[in-house]
């Protein structure tokens, strides 16, 4: 058994925006006006590995392919080339409130969110009280989600994700939710996950959080791996590149 949590090899993802996105019948059937699709290369020859128990940060410019990479790791998007191996129960927090329905109560949404992420009904029931308490929403749990403030919504979503009991957590820019105390609480939960030999992959624009929290960092630049190493080292190189570009 390897010590890798995630093994990514030669992964490439290409989009053909004009042909792949919203092709109408006319565009796909019609012979005239042949639109030459300009291929967008989101990821090219990306290879790296993440060890078990590691906190792994991914940084890069907007449009560098970070979100695409997380989708590939979550295996919701099939790469055009290469392979992705994931060992463990993966939980994704790429967006907040996935599976939630605004019309329904917080209670109902805990069930929906938990089941959507792959929990069994009995497991959701077992964890229900903890989820509510962690989110600090005891008073509002039977109110429709649409009456929640942004912070309450985020706390509920994050709490559900933290109770999925993952070995691997994929996170995208969501730490900046809730107030300061909730932020502390979520960092604490993530450290607990790491202490249990869990793995966290973390995409962020907040370089200081990556530096403080991650064991290693990867700098993604226009779909390619620019540098992998200790966070401080990678961040320095990234900052140097940014300032020289300006």
């Amino acid at each position: 058994m390897s010590d890798h949590a995630i093994l990514v090899k030669d992964v490439g993802v290409r989009f053909r925006p004009y042909l792949d996105r919203n092709p109408t019948f006319r565009r796909s059937i019609g012979k005239r006006e042949p639109r030459v699709a300009e291929e967008v290369i989101a990821l090219a020859d990306v290879s790296f590995e993440i060890e078990k128990g590691e906190a792994y940060g991914i940084i890069g410019h907007n449009g560098a392919g970070k979100s695409t990479l997380l989708r590939v790791l979550a295996r919701t998007m099939r790469p055009n080339t290469g392979t992705v191996e994931v060992h463990g129960r993966t939980s994704t927090l790429l967006q907040l409130g996935v599976g939630f329905n605004n019309e329904l109560s917080g209670r109902r949404n805990i069930y929906l969110g938990g089941l959507a992420h792959g929990l069994r009904l009995a497991e959701v029931e077992d964890r229900f009280d903890d989820i509510v308490e962690y989110a600090g929403l005891e008073h509002a749990i039977d109110r429709p989600l649409k009456t929640y403030s942004t912070g309450m919504f985020a706390r509920l979503a994050f709490s559900v994700s933290m109770h999925l009991d993952p070995n691997i957590l994929l996170l995208d820019e969501v730490l900046a939710v809730g107030d300061e105390s909730f932020r502390e609480k979520s960092l604490h939960s993530m450290r607990e996950l790491l202490a249990r030999a869990g793995t966290i992959v973390f995409v962020s624009h907040s370089l200081s959080t990556v530096e403080e929290f991650c064991d290693r960092a990867l700098w993604l630049d226009r779909g390619q791996v620019r540098l992998v190493g200790a966070p401080s080292e990678v961040i320095d190189a990234y900052r140097a590149a940014v300032s020289s570009a300006e």
Binding site: N101, E103, L104, Y111, L115, A116, L121, P144
Partner: peptide
Amino acid sequence: ERREFAWFLAMGNLKARNAS
């Protein structure tokens, strides 16, 4: 294995559709 999710999703939508 995901049948509980399908059921909750269906019932949630059923309820939400005319909730207001």
